[in-house]
Design a protein around this nucleic acid. Sequence first.
DNA 1: GTCTATAAGCCGATAGAC
DNA 2: GTCTATCGGCTTATAGAC
Lengths: 199, 199
Amino acid sequence: MVGRVSGAARDVIVGAAKALLWERGVAATSPAALLAAADVGQGSLYHHFRGKQEWARAAIESLAADLQAETAAALGDPAAPGLARLLAYLERPRAARAGCRLGRLAFDPQVVADPVLAAPIAAYFASTRAALAQAVRDAVAEGGLRADTDPDDLAAALVGVVQGGFVLARTADDDTVMTAATRAMAALVNAARPTEESP
Amino acid sequence: MVGRVSGAARDVIVGAAKALLWERGVAATSPAALLAAADVGQGSLYHHFRGKQEWARAAIESLAADLQAETAAALGDPAAPGLARLLAYLERPRAARAGCRLGRLAFDPQVVADPVLAAPIAAYFASTRAALAQAVRDAVAEGGLRADTDPDDLAAALVGVVQGGFVLARTADDDTVMTAATRAMAALVNAARPTEESP
DNA sequence: GTCTATAAGCCGATAGAC
DNA sequence: GTCTATCGGCTTATAGAC
């Protein structure tokens, strides 16, 4: 209450918006649908937010904060071996068909058209790629990955195979495609480890 | 003209629809926008198609046929070594930020809600995964990949890294993320090849 | 803070003339 | 085959009372 601009109704609205954006995306979520989901009146919505852009932004930024925290948690202790962190990222359980809460917005018309909505999404992926690139660098230094491994490239491939897994799981309507893809990726990473004979 | 239900205007409409679906997706493409893009009157549109679902379906099926042909061409001669076909798939040039013409529709609200629109997309990805799984099987038989490689898993990872590359390129507004991801994948595949000492 | 009433504009389609 | 006119419903607000 001190220095914060209220809370209750606003938080309920943002929470409902986050759920709806995950389910349907921005363009397909109407103010009316949000009111129903949040069980809040129109007056309340327009008191707390000037319009759709504002609540969509708040929801996306909150989703980005959630994902950032979850990804950091999945990677685990930064002092752990790089290879273990990277494999932990791949093997984290995911609701594949539901889609990545942020990645699924990549081609949402309203997100594409509005840099304010796109920015938090770009920031999340940049940050995740950076964290994975660091894990790769550590793995190389620790002898867990070949010295000629490009950290930025491999980080892009790791995040990519997960995001692609979401797309494939949705189109195939089958969660197991995600685990197939990440399992293959983990196998490749393990198979590509430096041999004991060739340091 | 023989046994075909006309053509000219219909083909122009489908062509315009394909371009619009690639740019904006199904939900964000209105009949009015299609009329403007195709430079055709409303009477013409509703003469050739009963409604939005019908022209969207025609456009998606045509996009799927295009992609199927392009993917087959990228994979090259089916008699070529499996490893070469698989690497050719990865290295095919792509308009990364524009998105995959079909993959970008995976989370389109109107596609998600309508199996008629989703089916051709599912079929394309199933077919591409099958073709890559066959390339992997051939590569294993030819000694280009380790015998313990799972063909279906690796196929999912290959298509996945490409689809994820589209998502990352769009969110980062940077085409090079795609090539970074596919380059890392190609490097992993090469690094994982069976050593000469261990048959 | 929250309510109800009202509105301009677009979406997707239909009707009926030509 | 293609045209124009018209339509109900939804979207995204705004206005002003309480």
